[in-house]
Nucleic acid binder design. Sequence first.
DNA 1: CGCAACTGCTTGCAAATTGCATACAGAAAG
DNA 2: CTTTCTGTATGCAATTTGCAAGCAGTTGCG
Lengths: 167, 167
Amino acid sequence: MDKPIRSGCPINLTLEMLGDRWSLIVIRDIMFGNRRHYRDLLNNSEEGVASNILADRLKKLVDRGLLSTSADPAHKQKTVYSLTEPAIQLVPLIAQMGAWGRRFTPATRELSIRAQLLEEGGPEMWEAFMAELRSLHLGAQPPQRSVIGELTEAYLAAVADRVTGRL
Amino acid sequence: MDKPIRSGCPINLTLEMLGDRWSLIVIRDIMFGNRRHYRDLLNNSEEGVASNILADRLKKLVDRGLLSTSADPAHKQKTVYSLTEPAIQLVPLIAQMGAWGRRFTPATRELSIRAQLLEEGGPEMWEAFMAELRSLHLGAQPPQRSVIGELTEAYLAAVADRVTGRL
DNA sequence: CGCAACTGCTTGCAAATTGCATACAGAAAG
DNA sequence: CTTTCTGTATGCAATTTGCAAGCAGTTGCG
């Protein structure tokens, strides 16, 4: 079932855990979009995951300790997916990915705004973001600053800009 | 040949470019191990790439602008692979991957030493490393500080420690 | 109650990708 | 000149992907 480890190099092991085309997309959507349910992830995916792939990745991410599941008290059939501490600590990595992608790939302005803010905010902002995620996913005390709020606001403003520009 | 872009999200686009099990391994070996030839990459790979996969990834990385090729003046049959500026700017991303892997995967101490140094060195060290890579791969002026030297020294010391410990 | 919509998946199946072994043509070394 | 080294290419089996459809239990609503 689980394939043998190729080497003990931390970069390689990170790749073995997250180095495919979907795992980080799922984590990104849970992290930035606060998508906590299967259907939510499936239908609101910017990239369009297939249902079997999503189910497989969720299972693997839970197995590998990056996500945890819990029951939804309001709906007996719903499973709530939460980020674990290791997944939350992917924030700096994801921020660097966004920063690199913004520079060297044909990313759209709209979808790059959040990456830009995260890059400009630096480690201080990443820490605040992680504190917020710990509050949302691990039940920690809510922090004063809402990075998700800042990012969402900037994103919506960029979308509004585009719409206005077109009219 | 080239598949359609899934979305304009910078994180997604970075994944589409590097999100497989081998691309970053190749870049890592060129970057940290200064492996500049095909055979060198093939035989000294910690993880054991297959020859067809290596050829395919080298081609794709060149196509995508992360590597460049040049002729080896000393050997008409040899191709020299060099990092381009976009690949050099992966240093912060790779440093974060190493830092994360060191914490959350069963990485061996020996192979984690360099990741630890890079993490502790922070952005200042990353910049010095990038300057050194620009010298090695892009013909820029050689910098005073040799990060590769520091990393290699620490790695060899760790290996020596292990060997001594065993005897 | 009754039925449609929604829940998180699962299953078939074709196509693409991977990984292993082997082959190969040209160049360099002895 | 023959062996070794260069960067690939080629079969082939096994795995992975992606699309479409199905499915049993739950909930919302009239």
